[in-house]
């Protein structure tokens, strides 16, 4: 087994042992509760909103939680002197996150299909979640690198959410209806995330979907580069500067 898979399975094992999966499942049940009490039968427009929140916020939180656990327990030190590459280490965390996000998606989608009405392209949803969670896990890395503890990281994540996520969410929910605002919001990666998810229900102009896809892919490449570079500073610091 190569070291990426060892690290990935290690991450998943620890997410289970440290009850991170349990917490994620509880959140999923909460979302299912929201869908249950929704007064509409067709929840096609609600699922992308829930998945949007999960794939953006949860991805950042999970990276912060696992990295701060590793810092707290000193395991990061021993990992840094193991025969693993920094890209293996980073990608393992990201794909563990994506696994959690996909479980959420599948649970909510299954509930919708069985008990309500849903008309979404599942493959499109899966692809969108992978891309959105990938990008936001990288954001989570950057937030963690620049903060001293998990509380500070959560505070920074809240700032990101207020600036980038909430305006997009309000627009998705129809509370902001303005063409100029709609265009301006495309600056934020969260807008592209929302557009991709919305597109799985159909009815989204092709240029918007393409722009969102290219934006997130390009931003992910850029952030991979930045995270790898910043990881070196993190390595020096956690090695015990």
């Amino acid at each position: 087994m190569n070291n990426f898979l060892t690290l990935l399975f290690g991450e998943l094992q620890r997410m289970k042992k440290y009850n991170i999966f349990t917490a994620a499942i509880l959140v999923d049940l909460l979302w299912i509760g929201v869908l249950y009490f929704a007064k509409v039968e067709d929840i096609t427009s609600l699922i992308p909103i829930i998945v949007y929140i999960d794939a953006t916020a949860m991805s950042m939180v999970l990276v912060g939680a696992t990295l701060f656990y590793e810092k707290q327990e000193g395991t990061i030190r021993t990992l840094l002197v193991s025969p693993i590459s920094k890209s293996d280490y980073i990608l393992a965390k990201i794909f563990a996150n994506i696994t959690s996000n996909l479980i959420t998606l599948l649970l909510i989608y299954a509930y919708g299909k069985i008990f309500k009405e849903v008309n979404l392209n599942l493959l499109g949803l899966i692809g969108s979640v992978v891309l959105i969670a990938f990008f936001h896990s990288l954001v989570g890395f950057l937030l963690t690198f620049n903060t001293k503890d998990f509380t500070e990281m959560l505070m920074d994540m809240m700032k990101y959410t207020f600036i980038f996520s909430i305006p997009v969410l309000l627009e998705q929910m129809g509370l902001i209806k303005n063409e100029i605002v709609d265009k301006i919001l495309f600056i934020a990666p969260t807008k592209s995330a929302a557009v991709l998810l919305e597109a799985t229900a159909g009815g989204v102009e092709l240029w918007r979907s393409l722009f969102a896809l290219i934006y997130l892919v390009a931003a992910s490449f850029l952030f991979v580069y930045i995270v790898l570079k910043k990881f070196h500073e993190f390595q020096v610091k956690e090695g015990g500067e």
Binding site: M1, N3, T6, L7, G10, Q13, R14, K17, Y18, E73, G74, T75, R77, T78, S82, P83, I84
Partner: peptide
Amino acid sequence: FEMPVHFSKLTAEENINFFKKL
């Protein structure tokens, strides 16, 4: 290391097996 460097919620064997696989 002088300080502990293991996953506290994993058993000793789970820790060792994880690192061995690397």
